[in-house]
């Protein structure tokens, strides 16, 4: 896994309300060229006590703060559970 993916994983796990991180991708995070926009996609589970849309937005903001400028960010809520 690339350093960036590792950093993203740690940052997402630290967001309040995130209970699971099912995937961070794609693997091409390792091998983007200088001209390709970085695309970061995460799939997460969030706690039912939080609001899923707000948690998704917070996750995106956290990723944005550490991602290269212009990165495309996708946050997918795959579970909402206690």
């Amino acid at each position: 896994m690339s350093d960036l993916a590792t950093i993203v994983e740690e940052a997402v796990r630290a967001v309040p309300g995130v209970t699971s991180l099912f995937s961070v991708g794609p693997a091409s995070l390792v091998a983007v060229s200088g001209t390709d926009p970085v695309r970061i996609a995460v799939s997460v589970g969030v706690d039912r006590s939080m609001q899923a849309p707000a948690t998704a937005a917070e996750i995106a903001a956290v990723i944005r703060s550490i991602a290269p400028a212009g990165a495309d960010i996708s946050v997918r809520i795959s579970r909402v559970a206690s």
């Binding site: 995106a60 996708s74 946050v75 809520i77 795959s78």
Partner: peptide
């Protein structure tokens, strides 16, 4: 899910 940033997509399955 709504997002104000055109480079950010949010969704729930």
């Amino acid at each position: 899910l709504s997002s104000s940033d055109p480079h950010t997509s949010l969704s729930i399955t």
